[in-house]
């Protein structure tokens, strides 16, 4: 256990009434299978605007499949995804950025040959209006746009303490730094919805605490709603407003950290070991 109780979420009271608030993301009866393997089985849940929503579950529970379905990389067999007021049977990945959604990947998905700054600035390229010719000729509009994008990218590097790595090719950086670069790339476009797939995997305790702070700031100051897959239960309990628990592709628990902590189905499926220990202590 790494996180401390002092990291309790700020917004817990407001998150207890998700139905009343408009949702940033809703999935409704999402099912997905690969051949005979069921990855998702009728999963439904909502993410309220401004909330930090964790998705947890044992390995192979379908967490990443869920994010991939939400970002359109997988096409669900049935069910719908609601994003920013639109309903999709299959989310168009190409429009994701325009919908205000960005994400990070479980295994790093950076542009290895580009510098850190270029990687982060690439997160804004979809907003540039100048055509190729204008860029090549160097028309004032193209130059202004580009300078603006790089200014924003630099600001985000400062925010995530990446200035020192600014010009390094991203492939040469340590794993934890690359994770932060990917977060910076996802954040630079000021997304309304940020999907994080295990952002803290492989990080040290200090790095995790730092990143937890960054995620909070992303929500509080940058206004992003956050869906977070994370294995570190301490981090999840401290950071999230509500938690959805998946097991074998089914949603087996959904609620505040408190509720999840006391949910018998969750304990059986996911915290089974802890349950046994508690039971043992009780005897």
């Amino acid at each position: 256990m790494t996180a401390t109780p002092s990291e309790a979420p700020h917004l817990q009271p407001s998150a207890t009434q998700p139905q009343a608030a408009p949702s940033a993301l809703a999935v409704d009866g999402l099912s997905l299978s690969f051949g005979g393997v069921t990855a998702l089985n009728g999963v439904s849940f909502t993410v309220a605007v401004g909330e930090i929503r964790a998705v947890i579950g044992p390995n192979g529970a379908g967490k990443s499949s869920l994010l991939n379905a939400v970002s359109g990389l997988y096409r669900p067999d049935s069910g719908r995804v609601w994003l920013g007021g639109h309903s999709f049977a299959a989310v168009p990945t190409d429009r994701l950025a325009a919908l205000g959604v960005s994400r990070t990947f479980q295994n790093l998905a950076l542009f290895k040959g580009l510098s850190v700054l270029d990687n982060v600035a690439a997160g804004l390229t979809h907003r540039l209006r100048a055509g190729v010719l204008a860029q090549v000729i160097g028309l004032p509009t193209a130059r202004r746009e580009r300078a603006d994008a790089y200014d924003r990218a630099e600001a985000l590097l400062a925010f995530l303490h990446l200035e020192d790595a600014r010009d390094r090719p991203v492939g040469t950086l340590p794993y934890g730094v690359q994770k932060r670069v990917e977060l910076a790339r996802a954040l630079v476009a000021r997304p309304r919805l940020l999907l994080l797939d295990e952002p803290m995997a492989g990080m040290t305790l200090t790095e995790k605490q730092e990143l937890t702070g960054c995620i909070r700031v992303a929500r509080d100051d940058l206004g992003a709603t956050i869906v977070l897959i994370e294995h570190d239960i301490g981090v999840v309990m401290g950071l999230s407003d509500r938690i959805a628990v998946l097991d074998y592709g089914r949603l087996i628990g959904d609620g505040t950290p408190e509720a999840i902590r006391n949910n018998q189905a969750v304990i059986d499926a996911y915290l089974g070991v802890a349950h046994d220990l508690e039971a043992g202590e009780g005897i």
């Binding site: 990389l73 190409d94 950025a97 998905a109 040959g113």
Partner: peptide, 17 residues
């Protein structure tokens, strides 16, 4: 830069629009 992004990680390039 976008071309290089496409080369290095096509899926990520699509996701960032």
């Amino acid at each position: 830069r976008a071309l290089a992004a496409l080369r290095d990680h096509e899926t990520a390039a699509r996701v960032i629009g």
